[in-house]
Amino acid sequence: MTKPYGSSLDDHLDAEVARDASLADTAATIRALAAAAIDVSETVGRGSLAGDLAAQGEHNSDGDVQKALDVIAHKRFMQALEEAPVAQVASEEAEDVVELKADAPLAVAIDPLDGSSNIGVGMVVGTIFGIRPAARAEDPNASFLTPGTTQTAAGFVVYGPATTFVVTLGNGTRIFTLDRSEKVFRLTHDAMKIVPSANEYAINASNVRHWDGPVKSFIEDCLRGAEGPRDRDFNMRWTAALVADAQRVLIRGGVFLYPGDNRKGYAQGRLRLLYETAPIAFLIEQAGGAATDGQNRILERVASKIHERSPLVFGSTEEVECVAKYYDGRQPSAGRSPLFGQRGLMRS
C-alpha cells in the first residue's frame, strides 16, 4: 500500500515493486526521469536568469524550431536514461530512435519539453513520457510499433508555480509535488478519480475555421450553455501546454480536445501518438477517465512510425462519450453549426 499523504515518490515506487516485482526496471527508470525533472525544474524556475531559454536553434524531428530549453531538457533526460535499464528512446527532439543499452528490457518514448510556445513568457511547460517493453528485433522502431496497452508506466511533469510529477504504473494515477527544500517529490493527490462530468472544456478555438462538423457542433452546443441542448453553462480553458490541461482534468474533470482538422498536415491533429497521446491516455484511464481519437480508444492505436500524430479527446467519461456521439451522428445537433457557419456578422 502507498503510504499516506506526504510519502515520497521513492516510497511509492518501492510499494509498486513489492506489489509486482516485474516492475523493478520500470521503477528504476522512473527514478532516473524524476531526478532529471528536478534539474530541469531548477532551470525553468530561474527563467531569464538562466539565459535566453526561448532562443531558437535547429529544427526538431517534426520540423519545429527547437528552443534552447528544448535542447537542455532533451540532453538532461537522455543523460538520465543512459543510466537506466533502457534499450531505446524515441524523443520528439531526435529524428530517429536513440539506441542505448542493447540488452536492456525497456523502451522510453518522451517529449522532453511540452508547451515550447510558453518558453520565455513565464507560462507552464512540461515533460511527457511512456515506458514499454523493448522488442528484440532488427527494426529499431519495433519497440514502439505496439499499442499503448503495452506501456508499463506513463507520466508527465508540470513545471509551473509548483513542479508536479504525475505517474501511473498501471495501479492508479497519482500526483507528487516537488518539495524544493529537500529535492524530493511527495504525494499530494493519491489514487485520482476523474469526475464523470464537468462543465469545462479545453480546445484551441483559434482553429475553429478548420474544424470538421462534429467538433464545431460539439463546441457550439457548449457555447449555447443552458439555453442549448447541453442544458448547462460551460467554461473554456486552454494553456498551450498539454500537461497543464491534463493535470486540470485529473483534478477538476472536463474534456480536452485536439482534433484533426482541415489544415495541410493536420488531418491527424498535432499531437504525437507515442510520446504525447498514449502516455496521457494511460494516465487518464487509470484515473477513471476516457481517452479517444474522437471515436476510438487511444490505447488501442498502433503507430506505424515513431513521430506519428493522433487526434486526442480525453477527460470525464460522459464528456468524451458525448464527443463520440457527435462524430457518429447520434447527437441530434451534430452536423449543424450556425454559429460557425460561412456567414458571419461581418458578411452580407
Rank of each mutant, 00 (worst) to 15 (best):
L312Y: 03
S316M: 02
L312S: 05
G315A: 06
F314D: 01
N296C: 03
T317L: 02
C322G: 12
D293S: 12
T317S: 11
T292C: 11
A291C: 15
R297N: 14
F314G: 00
G315F: 11
A303N: 06
V313R: 00
R309E: 04
F314L: 05
E318K: 10
I306R: 06
C322D: 14
G294C: 06
A303D: 05
S310F: 09
L299R: 08
L299Q: 06
T317F: 04
L312K: 01
S310H: 06
R309A: 10
E318R: 12
R301Q: 15
R309K: 15
R309H: 06
T317Q: 08
S316V: 04
S316W: 01
E308V: 02
R297K: 15
V323P: 03
T292Y: 13
P311I: 10
V302A: 10
T317N: 11
V320F: 10
D293W: 13
I306V: 15
L299D: 07
V323S: 02
S304P: 00
I298L: 11
V313S: 05
Q295W: 10
I298Y: 00
R309W: 01
C322F: 07
A291T: 09
D293F: 12
Q295S: 13
E321D: 14
P311G: 03
D293G: 14
E308W: 08
V313F: 01
P311N: 06
E300V: 05
P311A: 06
R309D: 01
E319Y: 07
E321K: 11
K305I: 06
L299V: 11
R301D: 04
V313A: 12
L299G: 04
D293P: 10
T317I: 12
S310T: 05
R297G: 02
I298V: 15
D293T: 14
S310Q: 08
E318M: 14
A303G: 12
E321W: 01
F314I: 01
V320R: 02
K305Y: 15
V313K: 00
G315N: 04
V320S: 04
E308S: 07
H307A: 02
E308P: 10
E321Q: 11
A303V: 09
K305W: 14
E319F: 05
A303P: 03
V302M: 07
I306P: 04
E318G: 03
I306W: 03
S304A: 14
L312T: 02
R297L: 14
G315C: 05
